[in-house]
Computed example of a mutant assay.
Amino acid sequence: MDMPLPFVRRTPLLSLCTVLSLGAMAACTPAPPGGGVNDPYETTNREVHSFNKSLDRAVLRPLGQVAAEAPREVTGPVANFADNIGLPGMVLNGVLQGDVGGAGTNTMRFLLNTTIGVGGLFDPAGGIGLHEETTDFGETLAVWGADEGAYIELPVFGPSTERDAAGRIVDLVLDPLSRVGTQPQLDYGAVTRGAAIVINRGRFMQTMDGVLYESADSYLQSRSAYLQNRRFDLGEAPSGAEAGIDPFALDLEGFE
């Protein structure tokens, strides 16, 4: 009974990751058959969606309009840098998923862009065909067999599922770059990530405006877009389903 305790002390992050993962796999309820929607928290989700929509209208959308008009020489390096600092976490998730090829591609991309690309401000790796293999711990949980669980909308972060929300927590805990560098460097990384979100909001202005402000029910529209796109990306979409456009996906791959 006493043997595991020293091991836990030596590897607190691994232990926390294991606990959170097991909790997520136990808590997530099976998805409805045939690609249906499991939304038992719809009343609360709609309240959160209303808050997120107000936040977008007051902050993100106006800033996104400014970013959309800024020259690519300014916004491109910011987006590239934000993309680059997220790669170590994707490498780790690739390893946990057994995706050796994806982990190797992201490792080479990080090394090239960090060195030749001046700390990630530029994307020489993309120029030679090394494109980001996007992944996260939500996908790792899916590979490990965790069910999608109920749909939930998170404050600020937007649409998610129980599995993806648990994965987001683990990604934050395991982020290697949150534990290295000086405090000003860490703060700069956080600010850059926020700026990249604003840039992406401007990049997809028309699509997101269509979902949030031009649809009959923006909650149902954003829920459908998220679930359809996420299931397609994870290979869980029903046979014959097409990938939807996720207006909340902040993937900066290919942004130059």
Rank of each mutant, 00 (worst) to 15 (best):
F122M: 11
D123W: 13
D123N: 14
D123A: 12
P124D: 07
P124T: 09
A125D: 11
G129E: 10
G129R: 10
G129W: 09
L130E: 14
H131K: 14
E132P: 01
E132I: 04
E132A: 02
E133K: 01
E133Q: 05
T135L: 04
D136I: 12
G138E: 00
G138H: 00
G138S: 00
E139Q: 12
E139R: 07
T140L: 12
T140N: 03
L141F: 05
L141T: 09
A142E: 11
A142S: 06
W144C: 11
W144T: 07
G145Y: 06
G145D: 14
A146C: 09
D147G: 04
D147Q: 13
E148V: 00
E148Y: 00
E148Q: 03
Y151H: 02
Y151A: 00
I152E: 05
E153R: 15
L154P: 10
L154D: 11
L154R: 08
L154E: 13
P155Y: 06
V156M: 06
V156L: 02
F157L: 14
G158S: 08
G158V: 15
P159L: 11
S160E: 07
S160N: 06
S160G: 09
R163W: 02
R163T: 02
D164I: 12
G167E: 01
G167W: 00
G167T: 01
V170Q: 06
D171N: 15
L172M: 12
L172A: 05
V173H: 05
V173W: 02
L174M: 08
L174T: 07
D175I: 02
D175P: 02
P176S: 06
P176G: 03
P176L: 07
P176M: 08
L177D: 10
R179H: 03
R179D: 06
V180P: 04
V180D: 04
V180A: 03
V180I: 08
G181R: 15
T182H: 03
Q183A: 13
Q183N: 08
Q185Y: 06
L186P: 04
G189V: 12
G189P: 04
G189S: 05
G189Y: 10
A190V: 12
A190K: 12
A190C: 07
A190N: 13
V191F: 13
V191C: 10
V191Y: 14
T192W: 08
T192K: 10
T192E: 12
T192H: 07
R193M: 03
G194S: 14
G194N: 13
G194V: 13
A195D: 08
A196Q: 15
A196V: 06
A196Y: 15
I197T: 05
I197P: 01
V198D: 08
N200R: 15
N200A: 09
G202R: 11
G202Y: 00
G202C: 03
G202Q: 01
G202N: 01
R203A: 06
F204C: 07
M205C: 01
M205A: 10
Q206D: 05
T207C: 09
M208S: 06
D209A: 01
G210K: 09
G210P: 07
V211E: 10
Y213C: 03
Y213K: 11
E214D: 14
A216R: 09
D217Y: 06
D217S: 10
S218F: 00
Y219Q: 07
Y219M: 12
L220M: 11
Q221M: 13
Q221T: 15
S222I: 15
S224Q: 12
A225V: 08
A225C: 15
Y226T: 07
Y226G: 05
L227N: 02
L227Y: 00
R230C: 00
R231Y: 02
R231K: 12
